[in-house]
Design a protein around this nucleic acid. Structure first.
Length: 916
RNA sequence: GCCCUGGUGGUGGAACUGGUAGACACGCAGGACUUAAAAUCCUGUGGGCCGCAACGCCCGUGCGGGUUCGAUUCCCGCCUGGGGCACCA
């Protein structure tokens, strides 16, 4: 009986489906475990071999946990709203729902092929009304709450209204407008419109008028993390700053909790680093400098208050409000010219050419510490949106300030003596201060606190924390997304009632943009008539909470029952790529914290542990066409000839050897190709690149599953290397894994003799092999070292093979170990060996140390650190006995000659080293 | 520029807390079975040296130092691949 993987896999997939083997209940006496994959965006191109890597890892871990006696939640769904489906709709006139559905069907078929243990009854699709109803509901939670800075949590906005009625906003500084101050009497006197405008400045989801990343080609706004170097992440179109009315999430209020929360979760250092960089917390001080000859002061933000005696000039952002007031007539024209110039420059130009530009305003401030007059400059290198939009420049301690001073010939004050060489700024905090009055002789980092205290005493400033992170743009001028549950009446945003949800996405005639930068929904008369918001939510809305919906996916009265979310709690293991480091992972952490603050769930971090799978790169193959001919030259013969390097489909290449017949058939152009061969073969060029259709280096998992079976495919993906590491795909080694499974099969069946397995008692040697494998594979699986676990299986099977072990009791245990990795294979042999029930419900073997105990050890004996021989010594031998045996050994004596022994190191169970 | 990662045979990788570097697999070479092929099995396989062979010796984890009886592992300095951030004061 042969290993017929195709029949076996189909058979068991049908049985598992029929018996609902992967159905998970929220009621269980077993401990819970939640394993989550980042759900995919169902793109039109389907899966390539890189996508399932993480899914296979999570599937193995889920199955492993299940065998270990856990109630495992392992769901899957689709992040189905988004731009590509809509672009496709614009180009082909197909409704996004239709092509999304088709793509999902295709994904599902591909996923099913690989034999995952998802509970499909819990599938979610973010574009289903039954799902986005609750996305809208959570939006209303955000809209109806504000961040209370005292308790540092989200609170119902109604509470804020009662506070305003009693005391105004005296104790609740306005996050959206820090100058806003009003009393209770003021509040009571405001119109509804004014009151609502003020509340909007507090809401966690708010509508504002601000500079956004506008992408003309996509006709929409993008979030900061969707823009890369001035171009859109999707499509690579130019992005400009534009002032528009937009919805935002006030994520900045959560900056500190998002940062400190990182300490409570297991993310890789790289991932935590990326998030904390994005949040960008910096400690510094705000200092007020009085403007000379004008009744105002300029507030700056600096991280280096210790350098305040080294201030040679001030720089304000071109947008700074004070400029107009303080610029004397003599300088008005120059300033106006400079500001016009800055406005003419696009974001991309600024990033591309980092020129030093600036303009003196003609105004001065007075340094409060030494009463010196300090000139105020304007320059685009100071950003309006960060800190106070103004800085104090200290050229001897800051690189940009130094270059600016040099460029404009501003004299430089040295406050750090020899630590400043006059050629480069010295930004360290280690130098002793000079020229600094009461700070002289103090090391800079120690002076920071002293100055901060002084600022407070003088009433001109204080220590201040700043964040680089901005509020997240939360609206898109697109069709294929969640409608906002908001009506605009008289410029006031009214939320829909919960009972009015979901606000269904209407059908439109065309997907083109609406008037005045509005989305396609603005083209619908009935929609406008109802005064509904015409923007839709961005892609990250639905993905910010899907992991909660899986816990209670069919609930029609709540987004998730408290009982269900209390039972499942945090995601124990989340597996996905690093590309979501600052987008999805940050937003979903924020939403979780809000839902926690409002009492809807009982955990405030969604993901306990994150495992990042590496990216599988493509290994591209090239042919070399002699320029202007149909002659293709083998890689080794190209030399100096003029050739065009062309991608060729990797699936037509065996290693590096091109299948020339297949190549000729590939494209009509190549039908008449000639080849210049080396050793009778056409050898292709090789390069590692991103896997993509356009590079013809994608490999479809379906093809491999058809050729080798899902179990081989699963194990090979794991065998490739550590999951977290990026590596190029190479199909070559898959044979080795396939051979392993066939060899394992032959422990039960022989091609000629048929059944060879027997129901006999195992020997000690066989039990030793088994228990070594249990220990190794359990430990490796536990620490997600799936590649070494696969090799442990190979070692185990090789050893059983050498021992001629065909015993049911041993093999059955091995099959349970193997079940997470090769589920169909294990299930089939489990049945063949006449075991009870399904292997998916079996119990994981328990390691027993007594089977692997050794009595002796082959000790490596080194002399001066170099291994010279091995001596077998009983493990329970005393150190003296070991010494005697070792020194009595002829080879050891030969090496020692007659030199005295300085030291003998004996590490029990490890090694022996003699120092002479 | 700053931060995070990695660098080990022809290839993918192993060595988990400092203790026999190269597990396991691919590839390659040789052999067995076969009319042949596929499949399967066996042997060898880091580089070099002495030698008929055996025993054996030297070198070797990006480079250069250091700590240690002992370093792929720890420390310092550099080279280099990948990723992130980038006028953030």
């Amino acid at each position: 009986m042969e290993y017929q993987f195709r029949a076996i896999e189909q058979k068991w997939q049908a049985i598992w489906k029929e018996r609902k083997s992967y159905k998970v209940s929220n009621e269980s006496t077993k401990p819970k475990y939640y394993v989550l994959d980042m759900f995919p965006y169902p793109s039109g191109t389907g899966l390539h071999v890189g996508h399932p890597l993480g899914y296979i890892a999570s599937d193995i871990y889920s199955r492993y946990k299940r065998l270990k006696g856990f109630n495992v939640l392992h769901p899957m769904g689709y992040d189905a709203f988004g731009l590509p489906a809509e672009q496709f709709a614009i180009e082909h006139g197909v409704h996004p729902a239709k092509c999304t559905n088709d793509n999902i069907q295709n994904f599902r078929n591909q996923l099913d092929n690989i034999g995952f243990c998802y509970d499909w009854d819990r599938e979610v699709r973010t574009c289903d009304a039954s799902y986005y109803k609750w996305t809208q509901w959570i939006f209303l939670q955000l809209f109806n709450s504000y961040f209370d800075r005292t308790s540092k949590k989200a609170v119902d906005i109604k509470h804020l209204v009662t506070v305003f009625e009693k005391e105004g906003n005296i104790q609740h500084a306005c996050p959206g407008d820090n100058k806003l101050q009003f009393t209770a009497a003021d509040w009571m006197g405001y119109s509804e419109k004014d009151q609502q405008a003020i509340l909007m400045h507090y809401r966690l989801a708010f509508c504002g008028f601000g500079e956004v990343n506008w992408c003309e080609a996509l006709g929409t706004v993008l979030a900061n993390d969707e823009v890369i170097n001035g171009f859109s992440e999707r499509g690579g179109h130019p992005v400009e700053k534009k002032k528009l009315r937009q919805w935002y999430l006030r994520i900045t209020e959560y900056a500190d909790r998002l940062l400190s929360g990182l300490e409570t979760i297991e993310f890789s250092d790289a991932m935590k680093e990326m998030q904390s960089n994005w949040i960008g917390k910096s400690y510094g001080a705000e200092i007020d400098f009085e403007v000379s000859d004008y009744p105002a002061s300029l507030r700056v933000y600096t991280t280096r208050p210790d350098t305040v005696f080294g201030v040679d000039f001030m720089v304000v952002a071109p947008e700074h409000a004070l400029i107009e007031q303080i610029t004397p007539d003599t300088h008005k024209e120059a300033v106006a010219q400079y500001i016009t110039y800055v406005k003419s420059r696009s974001e991309r130009e600024r990033i591309a050419e980092k020129k030093i530009t600036g303009c003196f305003t003609g105004a001065y401030v007075i340094n409060p510490f030494n009463k010196k007059l300090v000139p105020i400059w304007i320059s685009e290198y100071v950003l309006a949106g960060y800190g106070t939009g103004a800085i104090m420049a200290v050229p001897c301690g800051d690189d940009r300030d130094f270059k600016f001073a040099q460029h404009f010939n501003i004299p430089i004050t040295n406050i750090i003596g020899e630590a400043f060489n006059g050629v480069d700024a010295n930004p360290t905090k280690e130098a002793k201060l000079t020229n600094s009055d009461f700070l002289n002789g103090i090391v800079q980092k120690d002076a920071i606190g002293i100055v901060n205290d002084k600022l407070v005493a003088m009433g001109i400033g204080q220590a201040k924390v700043n964040y680089r992170m901005r509020d997240a743009a939360f609206s898109r001028q697109r069709y294929w997304g969640e409608p906002f549950p908001i009506k605009w009446i008289n410029e006031i945003a009214y939320p829909l009632k919960e009972s009015e949800l979901p606000l269904l996405l209407p059908t439109v005639e065309n997907y083109g943009p609406g008037p005045d930068g509005e989305g396609p929904l603005a083209n619908i008369a009935s929609w406008k008539l109802e005064n509904y918001e015409t923007n839709t939510m961005p892609g990250f809305a639905g993905s910010s909470w899907y992991f909660i919906r899986y816990m209670d996916p069919q609930n029609e009265v709540e987004f998730c029952s408290k009982k269900a979310s209390d039972y499942w709690g945090q995601v124990d293991l989340y597996i996905g790529g690093t590309e979501h480091a600052v987008g999805h992972l940050l937003y979903s952490r924020m939403w979780t914290k809000v839902l926690y603050d409002l009492g809807h769930i009982s955990f405030d971090e969604p993901f306990k542990k994150l495992l990042n799978q590496g990216m599988i790169q493509g290994s591209s193959r090239f042919v070399y066409r002699k320029r202007g001919t149909q002659t293709f030259i083998s890689a080794g013969l190209v030399g100096e000839q003029e050739v065009d390097q062309l991608h060729v489909d990797v699936n037509m290449v065996d290693g590096v050897e091109l299948d020339t017949a297949a190549f000729k058939k590939w494209k009509p152009d190549y039908a008449n190709a000639n080849f210049e061969l080396e050793d009778g073969k056409y050898i292709c060029g090789v390069e590692v690149e991103k896997m993509s259709k356009s590079k013809f280096n994608t490999v479809n998992p379906d093809d491999l599953v058809n050729k080798y079976g899902a179990d081989t495919f699963r194990m090979y993906e794991m065998f490739l290397g550590p999951v977290e590491q990026s590596k190029p795909w190479d199909t070559k080694g898959i044979e080795g894994v396939h051979r392993f499974l066939k060899k394992c099969w032959r422990l039960c069946f022989d091609e000629l003799k048929g059944k060879v397995w027997v129901d006999e008692a195992p020997t000690n040697e066989e039990l030793k092999v088994l228990h070594k494998a249990i220990k190794k594979i359990e430990e490796d699986t536990e620490r997600h070292s799936f590649n070494t676990a696969v090799s442990a299986f190979m070692i185990c099977v090789n050893e059983l093979y050498d021992l001629g072990c065909h015993k049911k009791s041993v093999l059955s245990q091995v099959l349970v170990l193997l079940a997470p990795y090769a589920p169909h294979f294990a299930e089939e042999l489990w049945q063949v060996l006449e075991n009870e029930g399904l292997i998916v419900d079996a119990a994981y073997p328990v390691f027993e140390a007594k089977y692997v105990l050794e009595t002796a050890k082959e000790y490596p004996v080194s002399i001066n650190g170099k291994v010279r021989t091995n001596i077998s010594i009983a493990l329970d031998a005393s150190e003296d006995a070991v010494k005697a045996i070792v020194l009595g050994n002829a080879l050891v004596q030969k090496w020692i000659e007659d030199k005295p022994i300085k030291k003998l190191i004996f590490v029990k169970g490890k090694m022996i080293n003699i120092v002479i």
